[in-house]
Design a protein around this nucleic acid. Structure first.
Length: 563
RNA sequence: GCGCCCGUAGCUCAGGUGGACAGAGCGUUGGCCUCCGAAGCCAAAGGCCGCAGGUUCGAGUCCUGCCGGGCGCGCCA
């Protein structure tokens, strides 16, 4: 049950009655536990407009609110805060409820994430979109929404001209693409230095886009190899993206003329310097002129803005999305701002909520975009290799007698989890610094800490005797109550992440949960206790383990039984 | 020039719709394994929340102006 929401609904109703008009109670988790479990600040805000004394209003609301089932103590404090303390019986009862409940009004939610450019290999810059998008997909799906993943891979730009000519000159042999990075830079070098090559490249783009058979065949082969590189990374990372989630740019090419037609029929298109544009009604350029979204170049070619409009229309109309979530870095904020405006004015977006969830770039310690010593971008594959190798060292040091295969498997889960958690736990809309040693640290607020907490709880459960005692008859000491209270807040945490699209909040929740378990572990011996006390402590261990496992799973992080 | 984002402890970061003494991790210092795993727990030190005004009963949070940083601004994606 979403306790916060339930309290808010009840108290809002009472406060509105006391006030005479509709006002929110604004129930939130209490920051200071001395004030209770939840606090409502609505009386303070409402008092002003109602010209009433906030404390009096709070008292009136409390008198009207039917909270006895949930709340053991409620009082008005300070200038007019309403403090609520939950009944212990409620916390205990919550431990027998399902961990989560589905959203009563499920939506169709399209998520655009990962979306690498197929001309190059995936590098560390793709991590954030891929990891965060995947966590949101898992979480929203778990809450009962219909999630449609869209991997909007770049397979259609002008850059494919030079790649095709290079590829064909090497006999369209897949082995020449073994290292996509060097392949791309070789092609770029020839394009810049050799005019014959450059002309051929330009001609090949036209061939490709007009559907010429040999160009198309070579292109398809190239894309196929590149996609298998991506898919291998997804599998290593435990990302749920599959071939069926591909929504490549090329797939929209046939739609583009109709997009232009639609814009034209709405009277939105204007010609400017030979290009066809839609001018913004709100955003201004350098010279104070309206900002254009260019949808057709002066040579008649289409651009990514055109493709994005086609994708938007497809998502809102064909897929019938209620929300469209874009996990794309912040450099594209202006682009999406314009895109959403034009999409709405052209009627391509329907009523859907269009959300660009931006994030900053990954930087090196010197503050420049993250690269290796020789100036190359860091491939995702090598980041994973290095993390696993480091994890294996640590695992081996802690478990010298464990056999190698088991150590390897544990190292894999720890390393992948640590990388994903390090990224997921940061909010950062601005650029952030990537640190090897911090990413690979297994202490403090990291995935290994959460995994360790999980294994400790599991070990107790493994060793525990079967008990017939009824845990609901037990009383909770402070450390146990703190843990039980936090456990009861899982649902409201998930709901808040669902609307905000900020998985770092779930990370914070799980970190706190693990910390509370550690404290409980120190203060409340389980195996040495007896009767209802032991039954309740075992139930706390069990519930915490289940919650950690479920929460980590929603983040896309595997758990392990020992480490 | 205009626009967006950011500036919180030595470092890396949290601080939902303004709320009750500003939090955590790392690092530093000092404790805790004959008790379920010490990848842990406990404690201490460390902050004019970039600066200056304003709105409010109340501002890290909202508004304005500065200072400092990042990114973006017509035919690339």
């Amino acid at each position: 049950m979403n306790l916060r929401q339930t309290l808010d609904a009840t108290l809002s109703k009472a406060l509105s009655e006391a006030c005479g008009n509709q006002v929110p109670a604004m129930v939130a988790q209490a920051k200071n536990p001395e004030h209770g479990d939840y606090q409502a600040n609505g009386a303070l805000a409402a008092a002003r407009s109602a010209r009433r004394n906030p404390r009096e209003l709070g008292e009136a609301a409390l008198a009207l609110a039917e909270l006895d089932d949930l709340v053991e103590h409620a009082e008005v404090a300070g200038p007019g805060f309403i403090n609520l303390r939950l009944r212990e019986s409620v916390l205990i009862a919550e431990m027998r409820e399902p961990l989560t409940e589905p959203n009563p009004s499920p939506q169709t939610i399209v998520i655009d994430y990962s979306s690498p450019n197929l001309a190059k290999e995936m590098h560390v810059g793709h991590l954030r979109s891929t990891i965060i998008g995947d966590a949101m997909a898992r979480l929203l799906e778990h809450l009962g929404h219909k999630v449609i993943r869209q991997n909007h891979v770049g397979d259609w730009g002008t850059q494919f001209g030079k790649l095709l000519v290079e590829f064909e000159s090497k006999g369209t042999d897949a082995s020449s693409l073994a290292n996509l990075e060097t392949f791309y830079s070789d092609a770029s070098k020839r394009y810049d230095e050799d005019t014959t090559f450059a002309n051929a490249a330009r001609a090949r783009v036209v061939d490709l886009q007009s559907g010429e058979a040999t160009a198309k065949a070579a292109w398809q082969k190239f894309i196929e190899v590149s996609l298998s590189h991506c898919q291998a990374i997804y599998e290593r990372l435990g990302v749920t993206l599959k071939r069926e989630h591909l929504a490549p740019e090329s797939g929209y090419s046939a739609e583009l003329p109709y997009i232009i037609q639609t814009l034209e029929s709405k009277g939105l298109i204007e010609e400017s310097d030979g290009a066809r544009c839609v001018f913004s009604e709100r955003l201004k350029s350098r010279e104070g002129e309206p900002l254009p979204l260019i949808v057709e170049k002066s040579d008649g070619g289409y651009l990514y803005a055109t493709t994005d409009l086609a994708a938007l229309s497809h998502r809102c109309h064909t897929l019938r999305a209620n929300r469209v979530l874009y996990f794309v870095d912040a450099r594209q904020s202006l682009h999406f701002d314009l895109l959403f405006e034009v999409g709405r004015r052209a009627g391509l977006a329907g009523q859907a909520s269009l959300e660009h969830h931006a994030f900053g770039l990954m930087l090196g310690a010197d503050g420049s975009p993250y690269r290796t010593r020789d100036g190359r971008t860091v491939k995702l594959a090598s980041l994973l290799d290095e993390a696993i190798s480091h994890a294996l060292d640590v695992v081996s040091e802690k478990n010298p007698d464990m056999d190698l295969d088991e150590r390897r498997e544990i190292a894999r889960i720890i390393a992948i989890g640590a990388i994903k958690y390090a990224d997921l736990s940061k909010h950062r809309t601005s650029d952030y610094v990537f640190h090897w040693n911090r990413m690979l640290s297994f202490e403090g607020n990291t995935a290994p800490y959460l995994l360790y907490a999980y294994t400790r709880a599991k070990r107790i459960l493994e060793k525990a005797p079967r008990t017939q005692a009824d845990f609901t008859q037990a009383r909770l000491d402070p450390a146990e109550r703190d843990l039980a209270l936090h456990l009861a807040r899982f649902q409201e945490t998930l709901d808040s992440v669902a609307t905000s699209a900020e998985p770092h909040r779930l990370c914070t929740y799980l970190w706190q949960l693990a910390a509370l378990l550690m404290k409980f572990y120190e203060s409340s011996p389980v195996l040495k206790s007896t009767g209802v006390t032991q039954a309740m402590r075992l139930r706390l261990c069990e519930r915490t383990a289940e919650t950690l496992k479920q929460g980590l799973e929603l983040l896309g992080i595997e758990t392990l039984e020992r480490m």
